[in-house]
Amino acid sequence: MRLSYPTNIKIIKLPCTGKIDVLYLLKAFENGADGVYVAGCMEGDCHYLTGNLRARKRVEYAKKILDEVGIGGERLAMYNMSAAQGPRFVEVANEMTERIKELGPSPIKRKSTVKGSK
């Protein structure tokens, strides 16, 4: 298909979204990500049965933490798509990129920019 998606997306591969940990998600933000999304298999299609369902719950938990610390849970999202849905992958990449562009850079980065400019 040779579809293209925004270059700002950095893919981190995991064997299954069931490997997702709340800490991985928080660390991504600590390391400067403006937004993070988890792309899991379709619900009901998990090779390990419930990996993607567990991932969704962990994403929800991490969203709450991000709200509490002022980063904003809306910068984190969970999507489900199958390996055969290349066009959907591109659609989600665009959608998430648009959402984060609207929200602007991560607040911690804005703070450090201000600090650096002084």
Partner: peptide, 16 residues
């Protein structure tokens, strides 16, 4: 410990 430390660092970075 890992999760809370990360959350506290994020919050404090956010506060500058």
């Amino acid at each position: 410990v890992g999760i809370l430390a990360s959350a506290l660092r994020l919050a404090r970075q956010n506060e500058g």
